[in-house]
């Protein structure tokens, strides 16, 4: 369809967006591959402990002789799962709540917005840490906590967009065609808010990856999962004699979060039908 082709044309015009897309696609392939391939065990211990990067172990080994590269590769799955699920949950929650609040207004709007403010003023990491510490670790819990912390961003954005869009003339024009209110909300208002929401949702993927890493870094995740944050956690003890244990997982987090931020920007610009570039 013409609209789809135009989207890709514009999207690819942002070189950073294109690079970020390729990077994320590679990550997805890696994540799927690590789940399908058997026979490689990233937990495999060896006698070659604390080796600096070398041709045999490109990114070195840790204190138990585990290969850092293998760890980073297997950590992709956790990061992406947490990032995507948390962002998806937060976005769905935020869109529904924000759209309802914006469209119908009134007491519901007031209450929802006050709740979302509470979430926004409390430092999210501390709140996440407290909740996980109280409820116990686990990937599903981490995802839920992150989604719970992130939905207000989407909801506030969605509410603002809905309030802006619903007073545009084309909504009134459609109303005069006798279309029902909820149909107007679903087919006219929300689709026009998709661009900023999708962009913000993509940014949340990055935030979620970062938050998961932070929780893992503080040991608030299941011990049997390989995650970049956990690798950092064990690496930081050897920061001065085995820099590779901190640098490479840290770089993986940094680049991945950056990629999702760039992707979010590119999506936001490419989806705007009036962007001229």
């Amino acid at each position: 369809m013409a609209a789809t082709r135009r989207f890709w044309h514009r999207f690819l015009a942002y070189r950073a967006g294109a690079a970020a897309t390729i990077y994320v696609l590679v990550l997805v392939v890696i994540a799927v591959a690590t789940q399908l391939l058997s026979g490689v065990d990233p937990h495999q211990l060896s006698n070659e402990v604390m080796r600096a990067p070398s041709p045999a172990h490109l990114l070195g080994t840790d204190e138990l002789g585990r290969d850092v590269l293998l760890g980073i590769v297997y950590g992709v799955w956790v990061s992406l799962t947490v990032g995507f699920s948390a962002a998806l949950a937060a976005t769905v929650l935020g869109v529904v709540i924000g759209a309802t609040a914006g469209h119908y207004g009134g007491a519901f709007d007031l209450i929802v917005m006050r709740i979302s403010e509470v979430f926004q003023v409390v430092p999210s990491f501390i709140l996440a840490a407290v909740i996980v510490a109280m409820s116990g670790p686990g990937l599903t819990r981490v995802v839920m906590v992150i989604a719970l912390l992130a939905w207000p961003q989407i909801a506030r954005l969605m509410r603002g967009e809905v309030i802006r869009i619903k007073q545009l003339e084309f909504v009134d024009a459609v109303r005069c065609l006798g279309v029902r209110e909820w149909v107007i909300l679903a087919t006219e208002v929300i689709p026009n808010a998709v661009a900023p929401i999708l962009a913000a949702g993509t940014l949340i993927v990055g935030q979620a990856i970062l938050l998961e890493a932070a929780l893992s870094f503080f040991g608030l995740s299941s011990a049997d999962l390989i995650s970049w944050g956990r690798m950092l956690n064990s690496g930081q003890r050897f920061l001065f004699n085995a820099w590779w244990l901190s640098l490479f997982p840290g770089t993986a987090i940094f680049v991945t979060v950056l990629a999702f931020n760039l992707l979010g920007d590119a999506i936001g610009s490419a989806l705007n039908p009036r962007t001229t570039r």
Binding site: A2, F170, R274
Partner: peptide, 8 residues
């Protein structure tokens, strides 16, 4: 403004 920009 009176035509939804996303619709043909």
């Amino acid at each position: 403004a009176s035509l939804n920009p996303r619709r043909t």
